[in-house]
């Protein structure tokens, strides 16, 4: 059986998609998959994903309906607005929500490992996370990653 390991380090909406898309697809192809969530990536394991947002600030590649100067992008509420617009676009184009992709991963036995050090660092409350995840460290990850066919850092 082929194996794939992913390290998910980002907690923004755009960076949340690649780990879940690749993991769920690899699982559908019969891969044994594990995702190690560390630093901001841990946000992706919270029960409530509504804080996972996209920011136009410092993101010049983000397509905008109208050109928007940085001074406007930094106004209060712009981040929520950009997130709302992006989610609306994703839905219209038939792209699954993060919640849906995440549960498809879990249904397909993708193993989620949360970085224990990050939990301690940011004082995360473990009850905020979804069920059926494990907690571990770099060694836990490398134990699995060392035997994989594909290993990605996202």
């Amino acid at each position: 059986m082929k194996k794939m390991a992913i390290i998910a380090t980002k907690g923004t909406l755009d960076m949340a998609y690649p780990p879940f898309i690749l993991a769920s697809t690899a699982a559908a192809l019969g891969f044994d998959v594990q995702i190690f969530f560390t630093f901001y990536g841990l946000q992706l394991l919270r029960k409530d994903l509504s804080d996972v947002k996209i920011s136009p600030l410092g993101n010049p590649a983000m397509p905008m309906p109208i050109p928007m100067p940085v001074m406007v992008q930094m106004l209060p509420g712009m981040e929520s607005m950009a997130t709302m617009m992006m989610k609306d676009k994703l839905k219209k184009k038939g792209v699954a929500s993060l919640e849906e992709l995440r549960s498809l991963c879990q249904e397909a036995d993708v193993k989620f490992v949360a970085c224990q050090m990050t939990v301690d660092l940011f004082d995360f409350d473990k009850s905020e996370f979804i069920d059926n995840i494990e907690f571990g460290g770099a060694t836990t990850f490398l134990d699995f990653a060392g035997e994989t066919d594909i290993c990605l850092f996202i």
Partner: peptide
């Protein structure tokens, strides 16, 4: 119909 990557594959599986 109407689904985008990777949903058609996941649903097929």
């Amino acid at each position: 119909r109407g689904m985008n990557c990777p949903l058609p594959i996941l649903k097929t599986k």
